[in-house]
Nucleic acid binder design. Structure first.
Lengths: 120, 120
DNA sequence: TTCATATATGAACATATATTCATATATTGG
DNA sequence: CCAATATATGAATATATGTTCATATATGAA
């Protein structure tokens, strides 16, 4: 939220009250950035396929790679992205690393997206 | 869904039943692509700010530009992206074009994203 | 220890994308 | 018609990103 809201509202000559309105309850830049980051991560076909596969239960890296017919390295890179976004979690068991969805919000997010494309 | 599920499940030597499981109820490539496209569009700070501004009510292009402190051209380009993704709609009134959110699912999608980042 | 397996990671490359600049289109007022 | 305003768009540029390849790390088996 800027301190300069007032000045700007008096300067601009179009529809100042609308501008001020839109600036109110403004999401902070930090939250906007985090939001964008989250959606960006889900906004890739490979990662959506991974999340969808994991929605059936936990899987190890090479099984995900087999499922998607992709290389292990590519999957591993994408899993790191998903991990950083806290969309998936993992546990280690010997040589194997088992990945799973971080929580139920992930599925909810995907479903909300499906909702949108089915309504358009 | 591929015809080759069976062969692959017999070929791979890791955890075939998990792979087959994950392939079941598979989202078609087309749906995955549409989903990814939708999330990708929302996955940009500028576009999130636009959607957030529009969540308060319809706005014209130059007011959005003023609100975000950005150029008219940049906003216009992004509005086209949002339009193509059916996230915003518009109506013309003389020289002015009024943009608004396409439907309530857009806000729901944003909220679901907020839900995720607040839980992590 | 040595070998095989499962996963992670850095570099490189090709592609996608956000913004800016210049300009085009369309509408209104004089 | 002409000028001003609101918006759209194409080209250019800088930056981000997904995959591959080669290689590193780590674990278990012999």
């Amino acid at each position: 939220m800027h301190d300069s809201d007032f000045e700007l509202c008096e300067e601009c000559n179009y529809h100042p009250q609308r501008i001020c309105l839109a600036r109110q309850q403004l999401l902070t830049d930090n939250i906007v950035f985090q939001l964008a980051e989250t959606f960006k991560v889900v906004g890739d076909p490979t990662r959506i396929k991974i999340l969808h596969a994991l929605s059936k239960g936990e899987m190890c890296v090479c099984d995900i790679a087999e499922t998607l017919n992709m290389g292990q390295s590519a999957i591993s890179h994408q899993l790191r992205v998903l991990r950083n976004a806290r969309l998936v979690k993992f546990r280690k068991d010997g040589k194997t690393v088992w990945y799973s969805l971080d929580d139920d919000h992930v599925v909810a997010l995907l479903c909300q997206g499906l909702e949108h494309i089915s309504h358009s």
